[in-house]
Simulated scan of single mutants.
Amino acid sequence: MVASSLNMHDLWTLRGVGHPADLLPIVLGCDAAGYDEDGTEVIVHPVIGDPDAGRGDETLDPNRALLSERHDGAFAEYLTVPSRNLVPKPAWLSFQEAACLPVAWTTAYRMLFTQARVSAGDRVLVQGAGGGVASAAIKLAVAAGAVVYATSRSADKRAEALSWGVRAAVPSGERLPDKVDVVIETVGEATWSHSLRSLRPGGTVVIAGATSGMNPPADLGRVFYLQQRILGSTGCTRSELVGLLRVLEATGVRPVIDRVLPLTEIHKGFQLMIDGALTGKLVLDHMEENR
């Protein structure tokens, strides 16, 4: 291991959400970049599953698991994964940048391009501009030629989103200049009604998380009357990680890194995440103490 990064998944596991006690203790950490046993620089695809069981998509395998759910994760010196989960790291990508990709950036990639099929000129709303998935979705959608809007309760995070190329960044819940074709939703309960109100008839909400709560108001009348579509999205395939790397090479887009901490300061990193003090990803350097 050379570098990893924090995800909300790690924090939820620490809180006891979705992780059975009989699988404890377990090493956390979903994002991993380092060297394989032959010394090759690699990124770890974090979904451990069988594509055949998911009709060609390992995220649909009923027995799939994200790294750290059934297998020890990345917050360690060494990591064991199936060889299929190793993807060569391009030389133009640093280990710190690579450690941001496996969960947050591939989740955003799948939401935008596999599920919503966003193309140039589409109008896209990204809720919660400061998060890892949200920052990735903004940068990828802008690079694809979409008209992007973002929301955040933080003026600083709205300003940061504007620097990434969004058309407008508004306080959470505020009306947008236009109805949008696609909403990228990871906040959940706090933003759900706003997401549906912001969507044009026939538009699509793609949801991959609910950090503010899992039980939003359904508003089913709006959904069926305006023929809105709600799509779930979880993880990514290995081929989507490879596709993301091609996009980054072609566009020059790189992950947003808030800060880098040595692995020994991981508890400080979790506190920053709990406090909502991050914009983009917090990366852990596993080699710092050896330098």
Rank of each mutant, 00 (worst) to 15 (best):
V47C: 08
G203D: 11
W12N: 00
N63Y: 10
T80W: 06
L125D: 04
V103S: 04
F224N: 08
D57V: 14
A159H: 12
E189C: 00
M1R: 06
I207F: 01
R222C: 07
I266F: 14
R175Y: 01
L140D: 01
V183P: 04
I184F: 05
S195I: 10
I184W: 03
D156E: 15
H45M: 09
Y225D: 05
A150L: 08
K268M: 10
P88I: 09
A21V: 13
A32K: 07
R254Q: 12
P262R: 12
I48Y: 06
S152R: 01
V182M: 06
A3L: 05
R15N: 12
Q96V: 10
G243M: 03
V170I: 10
K157N: 06
G18W: 03
A53K: 15
D219Q: 13
L199P: 02
V126R: 03
N290F: 14
R197E: 14
C236N: 13
W92Y: 14
R259N: 13
S198V: 05
G202Q: 13
A33W: 03
V166F: 04
P102R: 07
R291L: 15
P255W: 05
R200K: 15
Q228L: 13
V124D: 02
D275A: 11
E77I: 02
A99T: 10
G213D: 02
D258A: 09
R246T: 14
D156T: 12
S154Y: 08
S233V: 07
R117A: 13
A218P: 03
R238D: 05
H286F: 12
P255V: 09
G235P: 01
D219I: 01
F224D: 01
G232L: 04
I266K: 09
A143H: 04
T80A: 15
A3D: 13
A155K: 13
G280L: 05
V205G: 02
V126I: 12
R55T: 08
R200F: 09
L79N: 07
E265R: 15
A143T: 08
G49N: 08
S195E: 03
D38W: 10
M111Y: 09
A99D: 07
I207V: 14
I26D: 01
E41L: 07
E265F: 06
C30E: 02
G221C: 04
V180T: 02
S4T: 15
A21R: 14
A250E: 12
E240L: 04
A53G: 04
R158C: 07
E185P: 07
G165V: 06
D36N: 15
S233F: 05
D258V: 08
G56P: 08
L248F: 06
I48L: 15
A129Y: 00
S193I: 02
A141S: 10
S83E: 15
R175S: 15
G145A: 12
H71K: 07
F75D: 01
M287V: 14
A136C: 12
I184Y: 02
K179D: 09
R222L: 12
